[in-house]
């Protein structure tokens, strides 16, 4: 089956603040994404293993044993999941963690207070378009 243009992309949203999570989910669904919510690192990993995903929006500070960096590390360890685009949601003051997340291979970071939801979704779309590059578009010598 060839993916249709505008086929629904499945996005995992990992955020422990309920109000932020539901706002994000509403908006993403409205924009045509299929959304999987998760409030803890453990729940996120379970959902990552369950079904293939097109992208992950990941908060860094999460309750319980596993924070966003932990989720990212596990994600990057497996062949199946290491290429899924990851967008970090951060707060001002999370500098150290953001640095680590980018070093670990996160694709972008968004300071929550700085980005409107529209911008966030626009960036997500771009990220999905860039990755993975279809072989047909490679320039051959």
């Amino acid at each position: 089956m060839t993916p249709l243009l505008g086929a629904q992309k499945r996005v995992l949203v990992v955020e422990d603040e309920e109000a932020l999570l539901s706002t994000l989910c509403d908006e993403l669904e409205e924009s045509g994404f299929t959304v999987e919510p998760a409030v803890t690192g453990e729940e996120a990993l379970r959902k990552i293993r369950e079904k293939p995903l097109d992208g992950i929006i990941l908060d860094l500070l999460l309750p319980g044993g596993m924070d966003g960096l932990g989720v990212l590390a596990q994600l990057k360890e497996s062949e199946q999941t290491k290429d899924i685009p990851v967008v970090i949601l951060s707060n001002i003051g999370d500098d150290e963690k953001v640095r680590e997340a980018l070093d670990q291979g996160a694709d972008a970071y968004f300071v929550k207070t700085r980005y409107s939801l529209e911008d966030l979704i626009e960036r997500l779309r771009l990220l999905f378009q860039q990755k993975p590059a279809p072989p047909a578009q490679r320039i051959s010598p």
Binding site: E17, L20, L24, E27, K112
Partner: peptide
């Protein structure tokens, strides 16, 4: 002050994201 400001980012994000949406 730092801690409070840090905590304030959550309600502020909730406000601005939803206000953006309401506006649209």
């Amino acid at each position: 002050v730092t801690l409070t400001a840090h905590e304030m980012q959550v309600p502020i994000s909730v406000l601005s994201w939803n206000m953006g949406r309401l506006n649209r």
